[in-house]
Structures are given as C-alpha cells and as structure tokens.
Design a protein around this nucleic acid. Sequence first.
RNA 1: GCGCCCGUAGCUCAGCCCGGAUAGAGCGACAGACUUCUAAUCUGUUGGUCGCAGGUUCGAAUCCUGCCGGGCGCGCCA
Length: 561
Amino acid sequence: MIRDALQQTVREALRDADLPEPATIVLDVPKQRDHGDFSTPVALQLAKQVGAKPRDIAERIRAAIDANAQAFIERVEIAGPGFLNFFLAPVWLSDTLRDVVLAGSGFGHNDSLAGQHINLEFVSANPTGPLHAGGGRWVAMGDAIANLLASQGADVHREYYLNDAGSQLDIFGASLYARYRGEPPPDDGYRGEYLVEMAGRLRAELGDDVTEEAAREWGYHDIVRQLREDLERIGVHFDTWFSERLLHSRGDVEDVLRQLGELNVTYEHDGATWLRTTDFGDARDRVLIRSNGTSTYLANDLAYHRDKLRRGFTHLIDIWGADHHGQVKSLQSGMHALGYGTDDVPEPEVILGQLVRLLRGGQEVRMSKRAGDIITLEDILDEVDPDVARMTFLLQGIDSQQTFDLDVVTAQSMENPVYYVQYAHARVASIARRAAEAGIERRAVDTIDLSVLRHEREEALLRALSTFPEVVADSAAGRAPQKMSTWVRDFAREFHGFYRDCRVISDDDMLTQARLWLSEASRIGLANALALLGVNAPDEMARLDDDEDEDEDEDETAPAQ
RNA sequence: GCGCCCGUAGCUCAGCCCGGAUAGAGCGACAGACUUCUAAUCUGUUGGUCGCAGGUUCGAAUCCUGCCGGGCGCGCCA
C-alpha cells in the first residue's frame, strides 16, 4: 500500500541522487506526530559509506524526491541528526479507509504463503487425563498461530498426536484398573481423582468383569472423548487426531529404522542401536532401539514426522512445552539423517512454549497428572468465558513464562481486555442499529467525501488501521499472537476515543456517511483481528448491573427480605 | 558443568527478530467527565538506573561478551 509506494519513491530518489541503495529501506511510523506520517533514517545509515554528513545526504535525497513530486507526499522534512520525515497528503487516509472496506473480511490477509501446506501440531497432551489449565496456552496459541498462517495464504492443517502406544498409557490403564477394583493406584501411577469417577462409569458401562486391557482401552477412548469436548468448548478443531499406534501397526517405525540402517547413520553399542545425531548437529548420539528390542520415542517420532511429509506437507511446525527443548535437536538431526532439512523440505520447525505457572490462593499449584491435584482447562472454562481464557493466554509472548493466577483471572474476568475490545465492536454494531432506526442508509463508499474525516481522533483511528496488515504479517512470521492482541487492544482504545469525541449520527449528512464508513472500517479491523485470535466479535454486550462491584456474590445469595 | 527461555513503572506485561528522535499499555493510587450512538467508556496526574558491567555504533531496552538472579532441561522415560 502506501508504504510500498514510499519505499519506491525513496529508492528512486537514492538512484537519482547517485547514492547507494541499502537492501531494505527502513520506514517507521514515528511516535511523535510532528515527525510526520512516516520517517526513514536512510541518510544516517549511508553517512559512513558515503563519507558525508547525514543532513547533507538527507538534503540530496529530499531534492531528488521534490524533483519528482508525488501527489501523495505533501512535504518532506529533515529533522534531528538527519531523519527524513514524510508528511502525506490527507488523501492517503481516505484511501486507506476505502481499501479496508473493499477488502472486508480479507483485510489483513495476503497470499505470501500461498502454495504452502503447513502441518501444525499442537497440544498433543498424553491421553491419560484431562487437559490441564496450562495446556490452555497451547490450545489458544496453536489455534491463533494456525489462523495467522492461514491469513498469509498457507493451507494449514491442525493436528493432534496421540501417544497411545507407550508406557504412559499402560500406567494409566493400570491406575484406572486399580480404581476400578477399589484399590489405590500403583506407586508410579496416576493419582488423580478423575480416575475414580471414570472407574465408576467404566463399571456402569462394561460391568464387573473387565480385564485390565479392556479398562485401559475404554479409558483411553473416554479420555480422548473428554479432550475433544474440552477443545470443542473453547472452539478449537483439529483436522487430524493421529494415533501413534498406526506407526507401529503399519510398520512405519520398522521401516524408518531400516531406512536409517541403510543410510549408515546407526551403530550398535551396549546392545542398543544408536543414531549418529552428532553428525547432524546434536550434542550426543541417541538410542533408536533399546537393548530390550523396543523402539524409543525418537524412533517413533522420526517415523511420525516422515509420515507427515509423505502426506504432502511442505512445512512442519510443532508446538512443544519448553520442558522438551532437549529433544528439538534430536528430532531435527534425525530428520536430516533421513535426508530432509533441505531447501525443498525444511527441517521441522519447533516452537517452544515456556510453561504456565498456575497460582491459586496465592500458592503455586504443581500441574502433574500423576500427582493428582490438577486444575483442568475445564475448571477454568467453568468459571470464565472461553474468550476470556483465550485472550488471557494470548496476551504475552510464548517465550516468556506465564503466571496464570486463577483467582485474579476469575475475579477480574469482567475487566479482561477481551471485553474492552469486544465492546468496541459492539459499539459499531449499536451505531449501525441506531442509524437504521433513524432511517439512515449507508451509501456506496465511493460516493462519499471521506476528506471530512479530519478530526484528530478520526485520523488516529485510520492511522492505526493502516498498520493492521503489517502487524498481521509480523505476527504470523514471528509466530507471535501477542502482537495481534496488543494491536487490537490499542486499536480498540483508538475507537473508544473516537466514539467519545466524534458523534457518528448527526444532522450533517455527509459527515454522518463518512463516519458510518469509518465505523464500518473499524469494525472490519476489530473483527478480523479477533477472528485471528479465535475470539468472538459480538454485536452487543450483555448489560452489566450498575451495582455490580458492591455485590460480591449475586449468584447464590439468600433472599434478603 | 552444559543447553534453551526470562529479567522493562508498585503489580502483570508489550516493545527486542530488523538499533533511531522524549521507553509504552493495563491494573493500582489520586483527580475529573454521563439531559449523549450502552460510562464494560473517556480525560488528566502519579510512577522506570530497561538486572549489572563492559564492547560495537553518529545512535543500544534492542546487537556482541562476561557476570548476577529466576524457570526448564541435560535417560536405553515419554
């Protein structure tokens, strides 16, 4: 859009002025309004190379730009040590508004990743218990990242990997079976109360004569059903639930081991078969086949990732908890050993997410399915709206540890930023309803004089809106949904300010029309941003009681006569 | 010991990838604004040695090095 045009202008000016062209022309939106609409430090960057004073270089560039006057540039100023500040003709804001309206739900989307088939694997919690609260971070992050990648034109496939072939499931089965028989779970077993409840249903459904194996299978399928329900409740859908068992039953694991053997990257040692991952960058070699003849997690995982590639995906992304970071290099090294990790087939990308620290009553709650005292995602969803849960998980970067204080999140649920944003969206809808009641129709946008939108608030709103596409692109490229949530909060603030200071519906017909379109463009920005975050954009908000904050427990208090 | 992540306002966090002009938001505290398209809003005030020390640079919260503090790993577990 306008940024590209400016970049082009600067490039041409550099050429005309006989100056070298840096690979990228930096164009910033200055924090200060009096520094213009856009600013570039290019003259500062060239000073050393050219051997001239930055301000003199800036002057040469400005002269070249002026010589080739562009309609959308009102003036160029040289400021500070040598910044070139661009002041654009106000028409660019009108153009932005029209572009947004024209693009509609596609605003912020592009096709830079067109042709890419991305497999995004996330959550993948063991099917041995319900999703714990911290898992909500992977649910929300994964879904948002998938949305972001899709917005850039990629075909994104959401996948859940079920570790249903390993020892964890056996331990789970033994624990469930013990509960079924009224015994405590084994020492290394799962101690959670949910197994007692499940054992009761197991007995009700299958009777008193169940074997341990049957209990395990029943329990496994019941857990998967619970996982699906929890995920559905928060609005996340997986395209594939991939069973690890398939890798074994189909012979994939054997086959990948055979392939590695033929590639001469394995060796025998201490009765086990090892993979020379050190040849491919790993810190030490890894075992593929234990001395007892069974395959390791790595062997299975290599078969799994090879399978994903064989299914036609061009790019694999895994979201893992940071407690698995030691395995990243092993997986990637193993995939290189298999011949992947080339320009055509890149190595799997692993996004590491720092773990959630969960607080309740000011105390840290250790989240371990084994230990028993877990707070589940379901528990959270029982107390707060799914939108609140999602937004909370998307407020900060995945690289930093998140402290999820259950008391704070539930107590301040109503103050959650998600409502601030949703309220802005609802306000637009409300304006539209009021306008309709007043018999005001929005006329075609290209018949409206948008140049009347000159209020400080209106311009600020449009400026903020104009940055949306690049924020989406940045957010997608950085796998950083928090950039999106930060933008939408800032943008909502701009809208609330506009709403307050610029009455949309007025006696001035043209101004009303222009502001209705500005509202609509804002709605598009809010709705598209929320959609990327996986959050609803409601047309109205439930009315809050005025005395809400005085009344702590309005739900179940006794009737005070 | 080695590896990854974090350390920014009283609290919770953006900003760091890709260095720019006076470092931002929310919450908290204090003071204001509803005859108004829903006040779940808006406005103002308060508040920061960007962990510490060096280095690179015209310019460092941002890049590099070394420390300090916190989290997580370092299995023929998954």
